[in-house]
């Protein structure tokens, strides 16, 4: 098996995450799709680290995880705040910044 298969798997997961971001309306599900995309990127990092024979890819994946965690924290806090005032978790709801 070609080690590139891992990369192909990463690409497929990434595209599925992109579809999830664009098609779903619930803010939490959109967020989870973003997490899926980040995970796909992590998989690609790890596979390349193995292919290249050094651990830099794994360190990069590590940092991605840390940043993703911080992002989730803040993002969910924002969703909660919006939900408190608007009583809705749809991302189509706040659409006032328009023409």
């Amino acid at each position: 098996m070609n080690p590139a298969n891992y990369i192909i798997l990463s690409a497929i997961l990434f595209s599925l995450g992109a579809i999830g971001v664009l098609v779903r309306r619930n803010a939490i599900i959109v967020f989870m799709s973003v997490e899926l995309m980040l995970n796909a990127a992590n998989l690609a990092f790890v596979a390349f680290a193995r292919m290249n024979g050094n651990l830099d890819g794994q360190v990069a994946a590590f940092f991605v995880m840390v940043v993703a965690a911080a992002e989730v924290v803040v993002g969910l806090a924002i969703i909660v705040t919006i939900f408190r005032s608007r009583r809705s978790a749809s991302i189509d709801e706040p659409n006032l910044l328009k023409y």
Binding site: I7, I12, F14, G53
Partner: peptide, 30 residues
Amino acid sequence: AIVLAVGLAILLVAGIGAGLTDVVPVGLDE
């Protein structure tokens, strides 16, 4: 969205697949 995402997947697969056909992984044992 579906068209674009599928297109993206195809592009990535084609591009990366074409680039990595003869690569032998070095491995992380060392």
